[in-house]
Design a protein around this nucleic acid. Structure first.
Length: 656
DNA sequence: ACAAATATGATGGGT
DNA sequence: TCATATTTGT
């Protein structure tokens, strides 16, 4: 390239080397706040500007939709419209794209649906109770679901081999449940999140021609947050890499915090062995935090074994800026209430010193810990927002509404059928449902078709018969409108949805409800209807809702609020002032995590927490705390001890 | 079949 | 503590 674009000149030497190293396998070890997104996007721009690849020959993978969108937006700003033809997205969305092209090679029908957790739990619960007679009190379906998900993360298919430990889970019946669950999923023509990765892997392994197609296509593979990849993702990457042998992974072993979701930190630790002649570049210049904060974080994480090793250095321009940089505050309070009060006092004090509320955050280990803050924040009139709370698409009324739409799109979706058939009440209880189920099973038909039969043959009676007849008639009419969509110029998805919710009586259910939140729920449904007008087809919308969780929405412009969230949700974010309460043994590190031997991962979580802070961090614990009506005495977290041991000069400790 | 009363259980996290 | 699941009563 003759003229160096200015985005290249803005990079520091290590970042620039990472961008300019195009061929072969490259691991960019990128510490917190060292500009990894900038490097990733610059790399895309560099590859295209240098003629190494056309946009559609670059595969760029992330974990969250937020990260994917940010990457796409920034790439667009740098290289223009060409960015739109990049293969950029989450692992799951790319998996879906592949699966949609070759569903039959995975043995599923083309119009499959993506089933979420609720559906999975339902299926598993039914299998355990009806087919296998397993005590769901002893083995909770949720736990079984997670067990199956972990198997899928590892690439264990139903005819695969689980490890001995895994086989013995749930009374040695995990594989048995897994097989039936998978069979049921296929009957329902559905896939779960794990399948979105596992099926493409199976397709690649069984069909060399398909694998070759993608190997040829992707000249360069870029991966964000490599430390969070699971075994299946690793295998997919490895297969695709074999084509042109160009892969660049960005990651930080010190920020690997998703092992419970199947992430395998060994992937990043083993990078050099896995990819021949791999090069490792470390990004160690931190542009975010003060020297004290960095030193405290480094001291803490240095207690972990088996790290790739990396030292965060403060950026010099920034280091001089704060003449009297604050040490990391470590505070002991008498009890939980005291802790809350003092944190809020500090927040108000900082506000007076002209720090915006939006630049402050409280980060907790677990979701339920946000409650204690909520109450007091309300009474003091401090605006706050809980980030990553229940998302729009997880609300009951939205799930119900989507179930109606899913059933319309795909009438064989028995789970959606069961969800809505008696919502609003149509007099369908256990008895009627069991009758319908029996017909369905006998005739090999869906529940919806079975209902038609039941209505016609007089199996049902009373209110159920009357109401279901109406429901079926309405349903057929909605379905006809949907199916005629292509021919009808004036077809409008939002209007159809409104018709469905009106005629089914679903909206009336909330209109007539005396519940306090009924009006809010009705409004949410209206919002859903208006969202629908942005989509061409119903399947496009359903796909969107099952894959995207509208969480972590960007900060609303012009509005200032304090952010409260879990440490996990905070990864990738930064704030001037960060509060890190409840650093007590059992709570943080979390007891269950400790049982699973995950102390190091908990420490990484603590590291992530501290490194979110730009100017000041407040770590705190209480001597005693009320947990579920019971007062408990608390021991300070081992991480506090770690800070005392290796960052003594960088912390300011007080016992109040 | 449905509403109310009572028991239970989960309190790590998200594509 | 809160939310859901189960049991009991109408």
């Amino acid at each position: 390239m003759q003229n160096l674009p200015n985005w290249l000149l803005k990079l520091n030497p290590q970042q620039r080397e990472a961008v300019e190293t195009t061929d072969g396998a490259l691991l960019i070890l990128s510490g917190a706040g060292t500009g990894k997104t900038r490097v990733l996007v610059s790399k895309i721009a560099y590859l295209i500007a240098n003629g190494c690849a056309r946009p559609w020959e670059i595969l760029a993978l992330t974990f969250t939709n937020k990260a994917a969108n940010e990457m796409k937006t920034r790439a667009r700003n740098m290289i223009g419209e060409e960015a739109d033809s990049l293969w950029a997205g989450t692992f799951h969305s790319i998996g879906l794209k592949i699966l949609k092209k070759y569903p039959m090679l995975a043995g599923i029908a083309p119009n499959f649906l993506i089933y979420g957790e609720d559906d999975q739990k339902n299926i598993i619960k039914k299998i355990m109770e009806d087919d296998l007679d397993i005590d769901i009190k002893k083995w909770p379906p949720t736990a079984v679901m997670e067990g199956i998900a972990r198997l899928k993360d590892k690439g264990v298919s139903i005819d695969g081999e689980a490890s001995l430990v895994e086989k013995e889970q749930f009374g040695g019946r995990l594989m048995e449940i897994y097989r039936l669950y998978q069979k049921k999923l296929i009957e329902l023509n559905g896939v779960d999140f794990g399948d979105l990765l596992l099926y493409p892997l199976i397709i690649f392994n069984k069909n060399p021609d398909v694998l070759k197609e993608y190997q040829d296509k992707f000249k360069y593979i870029l991966v964000d947050e490599y430390q969070d990849t699971n075994k299946v993702q690793y295998q997919l990457l490895k297969l695709l890499y074999e084509g042109h042998k160009n892969i660049a992974c960005v990651g930080d072993d010190d920020q690997s915090i998703y092992s419970w979701r199947g992430a395998d930190i060994d992937n990043i630790l083993r990078f050099e062995q896995d990819f021949k002649e791999a090069k490792i570049i470390r990004l160690e210049t931190n542009y975010r935090s003060t020297p004290h904060i960095l030193a405290a974080a480094s001291g803490l994480i240095s207690f972990n074994q088996g790290r790739l090793g990396k030292t965060l250095r403060p950026c010099e321009a920034l280091a001089g800026e704060d003449v009297v940089a604050e040490k990391v505050y470590v505070r002991r309070y008498g009890d939980g209430l005291d802790e809350v009060r003092n944190i809020l006092n500090e927040i108000e004090w900082r506000q007076m010193k002209k720090i915006s509320l939006s630049e402050m955050a409280i980060l907790v280990r677990a979701g339920y810990l946000t409650r204690q803050f909520e109450k007091k924040l309300k009474s003091r009139g401090i605006t706050y927002k809980i980030i990553g709370d229940i998302s729009f698409y997880e609300r009951q009324e939205i799930k119900d509404s989507i179930a109606y739409l899913r059933l319309l799109l795909y009438p064989r979706d028995d789970l959606s059928f069961e969800r809505i058939i008696n919502v609003p009440k149509r007099g369908v209880g256990d008895k009627a449902l069991a009758d319908i189920y029996n017909i369905a099973r006998r005739e090999g038909k869906s529940m919806l078709e079975a209902t038609k039969i039941a209505v016609a043959t007089g199996v049902l009676k009373g209110k159920a018969l009357e109401q279901l007849r109406i429901f079926i008639d309405s349903f057929d009419s909605w379905k006809a409108e949907l199916d005629g969509a292509e021919k009808n110029e004036r077809f409008n998805l939002a209007l159809l949805a409104r018709r469905v919710f009106e005629e089914s009586g679903y909206i009336d259910m909330w209109r007539n409800s005396k519940k306090e939140e009924a009006e809010a729920r009705r409004q949410n449904i209206m919002e859903l209807i208006s969202d629908l007008s942005e989509y061409e087809t119903l399947s496009e919308f359903i796909e969107y809702t099952s894959l995207f969780t509208e969480n972590n929405e960007a900060k609303i412009e012009g509005e200032e609020y304090l952010s409260i969230m879990t440490l996990h949700a905070a990864k990738g974010l930064e704030f001037d002032i960060v509060f890190l309460p409840v650093w007590e043994q059992g709570r943080f590190p979390n007891e269950k995590a400790m049982d699973e031997g995950q102390e190091e991962e908990e420490r990484r979580l603590a590291y992530v927490g501290i490194t979110r802070a730009k100017k000041a961090a407040f770590v705190s614990y209480a001597a005693s705390r009320i947990i579920f009506t019971q007062e408990e005495r608390c021991t300070p977290s081992v991480f506090i001890g770690n800070l005392r041991d290796r960052a003594k000069e960088n912390i300011d400790e007080l016992r109040l």
